[in-house]
Simulated scan of single mutants.
Amino acid sequence: MGQAEFLTLRKGAEVTGEVVDRRSRFIAQIAPVSSEAEAGSFIERVRSRHRDARHNVPAWLLSDGRERCSDDGEPQRSAGMPTLEVLRGAGLANVCCVVTRYFGGTLLGTGGLVRAYAAATQAAVAAARDAGDIVRMALVRRVTCVIPYGAYERVKRMVMDMQGRVKDSIFAKDVQMNCVFPSGSEGAFVEALRELSGGEELCIVGEPMFGEL
């Protein structure tokens, strides 16, 4: 069964985190994916990018519960599993991470590898947070409303106060605001806008769909 709500990377984002341990470089690269095929394509892109690396360790997990990882030649459970566990611990889904290792000439042992692969992945997750590239996916409804210019700032605040988000606004003769709300919470906004307009219907409410909140 798929998750009702989860965190993932913004569409089109790719983030990187890197650690160095005894001259071995560990470069974690994370991208959003929506299927096993997309994960496979990302893994191949990273492998092509780092053909000269000793290892390219992949891990991915989807919102439907499917997940997979590989140690790519490293000792068993020293690379892929630590990478996957960091993704899980961050509450992420529909993501793929590939940690590239350039060998520095010193064996790190299983414990050292576990720490290094996990640290590189944690660095990439932190970079994604810092860049604002982590988004929440949930069951949402899109609400479009057309309002006078003079009401724009007030309605914008109403959207935020009622758990919504203004995706974009189109400024023409009037202002068209395209908003998204957690499914079930849009009713309060629609009713508040009806009261503000003296009973006029200003909103078009879409069907529930799974999307970025």
Rank of each mutant, 00 (worst) to 15 (best):
R157T: 15
V114T: 10
R142L: 10
R136A: 01
V99I: 09
D161C: 05
R142T: 14
A119N: 13
I134S: 00
A138T: 11
M137E: 01
G104V: 10
R165K: 15
V135A: 04
T106N: 05
M137C: 01
T144K: 10
Y102K: 06
L139K: 08
C97F: 00
A116V: 12
R129K: 13
G104L: 05
T121E: 08
F171V: 14
I170V: 15
F171I: 15
G132M: 11
V135R: 03
V159H: 06
K173F: 07
T144L: 06
V140I: 14
V146A: 11
E153F: 02
V159P: 02
V99C: 01
A127Y: 04
P148S: 05
T110R: 06
G150D: 09
C97L: 03
G150E: 10
R154L: 08
Q163C: 10
V166N: 06
T121A: 09
V155A: 12
R136L: 07
T100Q: 01
L113F: 02
R157V: 15
Y102C: 02
R115F: 02
I134P: 00
D168G: 11
T110N: 11
L139F: 00
A127V: 11
R101D: 03
G105E: 09
S169R: 03
G164V: 11
L107N: 12
K167R: 14
V143I: 13
T106M: 03
I170A: 13
R136C: 03
F171C: 11
T144D: 15
R142V: 11
M162V: 10
T110K: 06
D133V: 06
D130V: 08
C97Q: 05
G109E: 12
G105P: 02
C97D: 12
A116P: 07
Y152W: 06
A116W: 07
G112K: 02
